[in-house]
Structure formats: C-alpha cells, structure tokens
Design a protein around this nucleic acid. Structure first.
Length: 687
DNA sequence: CTAGGGTTAG
C-alpha cells in the first residue's frame, strides 16, 4: 500500500510531506515501491512518513486507477497535528518499547504538554502492555494534572481489578481540586459495585446530584446497577421509574438487580415489559434460572430466545451448559456442542471447560476428551475440568496420568487441581499416591491445603479404614472440620462398621449442618446397619421436630432430548404400565441370579418386610432404568441422574442388571458416578 | 484533540 517513486526526495514542511522525483522516472501510485534518496535527512523524514502512515494519522490522496500520467509530486497531508511519538505508542508491543517512547516524549519536552502526558498515562493505564506504576508516575510528574489524566489512571485501576485504589485515587483527585466529570463517576460507581461499597456509592450519588450529572445515562445505569445488586433494590427501582429515557442497559441493569435478589416474579414481570431485549437480557434470565436450580426453565428460556431470533453468545452457551450438566441431559449438551461447531465458535478456555464439565457430568468421558482436545489454548481450568471429569467418573489412574502430563507441559496446578487429584486418589483407593500428592502441593507448589484438601485426605484414609490416620490429620490441621469432612468420615464409618467414631462424626455433623437432611440420614443409616432401630427412630423424631424433611428420591433420564423424572413408586408416567411390567421382569431375573433385597437402609419405619421390599423395588433409580430399558435398543448405555445418594440395595441391583441385560448403566448420584458394567461398579463399592 | 455502561465456568 505504500508507494511513491524510485529515487525520490522527501521534504517535509509544517503540515505535509512532499515526495518528488524527476520527471524522467515514472512513478505509479499505488503500485510501485518507494526508495528515498540515501542521504540521512531524507531517510529520516521518510521513516517518519512511514510511521505516520502506519499509525494512520495521515491523509493519503487517492489517485484514480485511470490515471496513467507520471506523477512527479505527491503531497501527503496530516490529519491532525503530527505527533510521531504518540503515534509510536500504539505500535508498542511490550512495556520496554513503551518506556522507550516515554523517554522520547520526555527528551522532546513533550511531557510538559498535558495532552501528550494524558495519552501516555492512558496508554500505561489501559493497554495490556501497560503498567499502573508508570501511569501513576506520569500522573505524579505532571505539574497540573487535569480531569482526563486522572480519569485515565482511575479507569486503569478499575480495569486491572483494583477497585479500592480507584476510590482512593478519587480522594486524592478531590484534594488537588481537580473536578470530576461523568467519566470519573462511571468508573467510581463500578468500583463501588465490585467491592461492594454501597455507602460510598450513596456519597458519590449526592456529589453527582450536586454537580448536575445525574441525568447522564451512563451514570444513571451504573447507579441503578449498584443499588440493585447491593441490597437497595427499591432505590434502584425509584431511579429506574424516574428515568425519562430508558435504554437497553437500564433495563438490563434492573433485570440483573432482580436476578441478584432472586426475585423471580419481579424479574419475569420486568422482562415481559421490555420493549427490546438483547443477548444480555436473555443471558440474565438464563443465568438466573441456573442460579436457582430451575434448569428446565433455563433451557425453556433459551428456546424462547431462539424463537425470538436472538443469537446466543459464549455467555449464553456457558450458562446453558451449566444447566445441561446439572440435568445430565447429554443429548441437549451434544446439541450445544454441535451448535458451537456449526457456527465456528472457537472453544476458548471458559467455553472449553464448560463443555468438558458438561460431558463429564453426563458421564460421557469420550465427549469430555474430545472437547479437551478441541480446546486449543488450554489453561489450568481446562486441565482441572478434565482431571475432575476423570476422577469423578472413576478413572483415577487416567486422572493422575493427566496431572503428570500437565506438569510436564509446565502448566502450574492450583488449589482446585489438587482437590481433583486427591479426589481421584480417594475414589481409586490410591492411598500412597494421595499422600504423595498432598505433600507435593505445599512442598513443590507452595499451595497450603485448605479444609477441602484435608477433607479429601479424610475420604482417602476413610476408604482404606485407616481411622488412626484420620484422627491424626484432623488433629493436625489448622482449621475446624467442615460438614463435608464429617460426611466423608461418616461414610467411611458406615462402610467399615465403625459405630463409635461414626456416632461422633454424625453428632458433629448435625451440630454443624442442622438443616441438612443428609446429616440425619447418614447417621441413621449407620445405626440401621447395626439394627439400632431405637436410635434410628430417635433421629427420625428429631428431624420431625425440627421440621426437616428428606426430599423424595428423584431420578431422571433423558430420552430424545426430553428429561423424564421419576420419584419413588411413581405412577404418573404415560408409559407406567409397560414400566411396571418391565420392573416385574427385572425382579424375576434378579431373583434367578440370586439377588436378595437389602432392606437395611430403608429409612422409613416400615415394619412389614414385604412393604419394605416393594418400596425398595420402586426406588426412583430403578424406575428410571426400567423406563430406559423399554425406551432404547438393547445394548444402549443407560444414563440416570439421582438427586440423593444411591442406596446399597439399588447399588447391588444395578450391578446385577448391568450383567443380566448386558447394558452399561451410568448413575450419577449426589456425590459421585457409578459406571455399572458386567456386574461391577467403577466406585468399587465404596461411596 | 483523547475515553465510557450491563452478562461468564470449576
């Protein structure tokens, strides 16, 4: 694109460059190349010209293609006052280069010019190759900094996630009698929202009113957002209602306020009233329903979004994948993956991790591996998602192998990585590996274990029945055990029949999580194994008195993109008759295979042995599997998601069923995955 | 002369 003529001379006057060449030589614009005369002044001028052209501060004359005459003189004019140094700033690729330009600006005394200083400070503050330290230096070095300069540094601190500094800078700005404008306040209010510091926000609001800036739509939207998400939803609404012109951001800010306050009714009302909706509006709705665990509604909103012709973006897809993961709705998850591929959406680290996580939560490791491969730019989150996926799906050794691979590639693990790795060890019964990695995290990577890591160790030792090790680790850790840890211990005591320690753990757990039904149920299960029915009844009574109810067991299975849910003894499904026939057949074949019902964990106080059995036989996961059997071709993998932990009877039943019917059955319970195949389970009968 | 708003996984 750059042009001129062969052996030209380059002259520069105040606001333009002239390239001239002798009339003998023909110059073509814009095809031929420029070769300036090699004398130093001409060369320098020419380089200057090139830089200006690259930084686009020049107006280059266009010459029609029909022009065939030789050109002897070209005049290139400047768009604005030429400022080579500042133009260079935008060509800087790293901080070193920027400081060199900074030096040029100082050398040429340009730094005393407030405009140049501002642009320099802005570059340091905002750009990726910048440095807040240098921005601050520029601010400090200028005799009389003015609003723009302050705004640049303030905004820089906000962008680089330093909201507190942002507000402190504002204080200094006022002391130096620099008047803030609406740009200043938008940054400041955002800082207040991030902190959050609603009280400071209120003070700012009054200053905004004093300065007459309250009618700026930017400021108003930020204020609404701040009030809405920091608990003053009515104040937000007041501002919203008093606004004369509402733009889409105003609506979305208010919408997000209701979402944050989990006020679904107000949210929906507002959403329905919106004159226009954009992708953010829809995303807010979807994220809200994911947040309140109404995943079906989240997907329903997405359907509506599509009907309205709004194209989903990355955020939409991530929220949606999260909903699909919870539901275990693999077909819908696959649809999203196909959508991503079809629209050429690149798997960035977030979307990639969300996709890996979705496949893993649906018990589909092949999909997870594919998504992992497809994510080109992997970060620690990508690796974590894959390691977690392998660990939760019972592929402990593969998880550990992947961890080593990650280390080899020089990716630094973080605290979450170690949660996954330790989980892999505990689920796989790899005590030594677990201990090794537990030590590694602080010794090699300087990551201090938190309560979740200690919890993993309790799980690890608990599974192996090493109760003295557990006491050791609980005694040595610098924090108090949390509910998760007590649950892990209680689980271990149940498996190994350690009534005494289990009792202790159970009571600690009930004290720590008195409103969690699982606390009572786990302890009750422990008692039930030992036939301590008195204790079981006491716990039941305690639950009743405290108004704590065990939610009904509920299992779901996805069929042709529809999620079917079943509860114990469900009789509402349209194919109920076939299902119950299938259940009878299953029971018959189970009996033939030598199955004996395990009634030990029927929590309900049912005396009649036969009723106990029926109640067991109709546990929701069995219904879901029966439905799966009658709805799919032989050999198809059955994937079930359960809201509670699977009981021992269902567990042994599933093992047998997988063998009898020659089917892989994958059950995700509230705690982990069970891949049943050919009579055994990936959890190795420990959960 | 210059700039700016809302949504994101594990």
């Amino acid at each position: 694109m750059i042009v001129g003529c062969i052996f030209a001379t380059c002259r520069r006057s105040n606001d333009h460059w002239i390239i001239s060449c002798s009339s003998v030589q023909r110059a073509f614009w814009p095809a031929s190349l420029v070769k300036p005369e090699i004398h130093s002044r001409g060369l320098l001028l020419f380089l200057d010209l090139l830089i200006q052209i690259i930084s686009m501060s020049l107006t280059i004359p266009t010459i029609p293609a029909t022009h065939t005459e030789p050109i002897t003189n070209l005049t290139i004019t400047k768009k604005t006052k030429p400022n080579t140094n500042l133009s260079l700033l935008h060509l800087c690729n790293n901080l070193r280069e920027a400081t060199q330009v900074h030096a040029l600006i100082i050398k040429s005394s340009q730094i005393t010019d407030t405009y140049s200083a501002s642009r320099l400070a802005e570059f340091y503050a905002i750009s990726d190759n910048g440095s807040l330290k240098y921005a601050q230096k520029v601010l400090d070095s200028v005799q009389e900094p003015y609003t723009f300069l302050w705004n640049a540094v303030i905004r820089g601190n906000l962008i680089k996630h330093n909201p507190l500094k942002t507000i402190l800078l504002y204080d200094r700005m006022l002391r130096q009698s620099v008047e803030p404008d609406h740009f200043t306040f938008t940054s400041l209010l955002k800082a207040c929202t991030q902190l959050p510091a609603p009280a400071i926000g209120k003070q700012l609001h009054s200053q905004i009113v004093k300065l007459g800036l309250e009618y700026s739509p930017f400021i108003r939207n930020k204020l609404i957002h701040l009030y809405a998400v920091s608990g003053s939803i009515s104040d937000a609404r007041k501002l919203f209602d008093s606004s004369t012109e509402l733009d889409i951001v105003t609506w979305n800010s208010m919408l997000e306020g209701y979402a944050d306050n989990t006020d679904g009714d107000a949210l929906h009302q507002l959403f329905d009233k919106m004159p226009h909706r954009d992708v953010v509006s829809w995303n807010t709705m979807i994220a809200f329903y994911v947040q309140v665990s109404d995943f079906k509604q989240a997907i329903a909103i997405f359907r509506r979004m599509q009907e309205n012709g709004e194209r989903p973006n990355r955020v939409t897809l991530i929220s949606l994948l999260s909903a699909v993961s919870y539901l275990g709705a693999l077909a819908q998850g696959r649809w999203i993956h196909a959508y991503i591929d079809k629209h050429g959406i690149e798997l960035d680290q977030n979307l990639g991790s969300a996709l890996i996580n979705m496949y893993a939560k649906c018990g589909c490791l092949e999909g997870a591996v594919q998504a992992f491969r497809q994510t080109i730019q992997k970060n620690v989150d990508t690796w974590n998602a894959m390691i977690t996926g392998l660990a939760t799906n019972g592929q402990s050794l593969k998880a550990l192998r992947l961890f080593s691979e990650m280390e080899c590639l020089g990716v630094s693990p973080n605290a979450i990585t170690f949660v996954s790795v330790l989980n892999a060890c505990s689920h796989g019964g790899l005590v030594e590996e677990g201990v090794k990695h537990f030590k590694m995290m602080s010794q090699k990577y300087g990551i201090e274990p938190d309560v979740t890591h200690y919890g993993c160790m309790v799980d690890l030792f608990g599974r192996a029945g090493l109760f003295d090790k557990i006491e050791e680790i609980i005694g040595a850790m610098p924090m108090k055990p949390d509910a998760v840890m007590w649950k892990a211990l209680l689980g271990a005591c149940r498996i190994h029949g350690n009534l005494e320690m289990g009792q202790q753990a159970g009571h600690q757990l009930i004290e720590l999580a008195p409103n969690d039904h699982a606390s009572y149920v786990l302890l009750s299960n422990l008692y039930a194994i030992d036939d301590k029915w008195d204790a079981v009844h006491r716990l039941r009574r305690m639950m009743r008195e405290r108004g704590i109810r065990k939610p009904p067991g509920c299992s779901s299975i996805e069929m042709d993109g529809v999620v079917h849910e079943f509860v114990v003894g469900d009789t509402t499904h349209s194919r109920k008759k076939e299902m119950y026939e299938m259940l009878d057949e299953m029971e018959e074949r189970l009996m033939l295979a030598g199955y004996k019902p395990d009634t030990g964990q029927v929590l309900l106080h049912i005396d009649d042995e036969e009723t106990k059995q029926t109640s067991l036989g109709h546990h929701s996961e069995k219904l879901a599997v029966a439905f799966g059997f009658i709805s799919t071709n032989p050999g198809t993998t059955i994937r079930v998601v359960k809201n509670l932990r699977v009981c021992t009877d269902c567990h042994s039943t599933m093992k047998l069923l997988s063998k009898i019917y020659g089917r892989d059955i994958i059950v995700r319970d509230s705690n982990r995955f069970h891949h049943f195949r050919d009579g055994s389970c990936s959890c190795l009968d420990y959960w």
